[in-house]
Design a protein around this nucleic acid. Structure first.
Length: 204
DNA sequence: TTCAGGATGTACT
DNA sequence: GTACATCCTGAAC
């Protein structure tokens, strides 16, 4: 059950919350890489100084934020890392959910290769613990760059689904327990004045 | 486990 | 020219 346009065409904070526990699937080199989303943040241009498209600011970079809901917005940050977002709300409303963290569920070998250049079994405990707990790390592991900016999440190469059966896998029992959703201030946006205090970060 | 410092390129003023 | 929705390393504890 791939999430459709309607899922993304809602209030951004609701989408951010509802993405927790769901599976992000990236078909890379013919192989499905699947991760369970554990941390998200909402960004809403019409009212949020932390959003790249605050006050409907429209530039070459923010153009993707004005795309239809269910579009991937990927940008380069700090000169060397990429961040993956899902565009939300009706087309023309610049808003998105940043995917900040996840847990590996399938394709561990490829994820580890992309991220550290070695096999998953060769990773140190420290590397495993900090495998996908950051937006840049996630993009690195999933091989997502600006080349994928603007990609539709309704297609077959990058999408979100509720269970792993969709890609021929079993959903682990530990993923079936009720979600404990928390919220807090968003990370790394101290410059955003009053918006820095919005509790728009959601995590398990 | 925590912390400081550096890497790196682009978007925007 | 400045800031940035980050990550890694190495040193200190």
């Amino acid at each position: 059950m791939k999430l459709g346009r309607d899922f993304y065409d809602r209030d951004t904070r609701a989408v951010a919350r509802d993405l927790l526990g769901k599976y992000l699937v990236r078909v890379w080199d013919g192989v499905p890489l699947a991760v369970r989303i554990t941390e998200t943040e909402a960004y809403i241009g019409r009212m949020d100084k932390a959003c790249h498209a605050y006050n409907y600011r429209r530039t070459q970079r923010t153009e993707t934020l004005f795309a239809p809901p269910g579009t991937a917005y990927i940008y380069l940050i700090y000169g060397m890392h990429h961040c993956l977002n899902f565009v939300t709300e009706p087309e023309g409303e610049p808003a998105a959910v940043l995917i900040r963290g996840a847990q590996a569920r399938s394709g561990n070998g490829f994820l580890a290769r992309n991220r550290f250049g070695k096999a998953f079994d060769q990773l140190s405990p420290y590397q495993k613990k900090n495998f996908l707990n950051g937006p840049g790390k996630l993009c690195r592991a999933l091989a997502l760059t600006r080349a994928e900016n603007g990609l539709s999440l309704l297609g077959d190469t990058l999408f979100v689904c509720e269970d792993l059966e969709k890609i021929g896998l079993e959903t682990p029992p530990e993923d079936r327990v009720p979600l404990e959703i928390r919220s807090g201030k968003r990370i790394g946006i101290d410059y955003a004045e009053e918006a820095a205090d919005f509790l728009w970060r959601y995590y398990l």
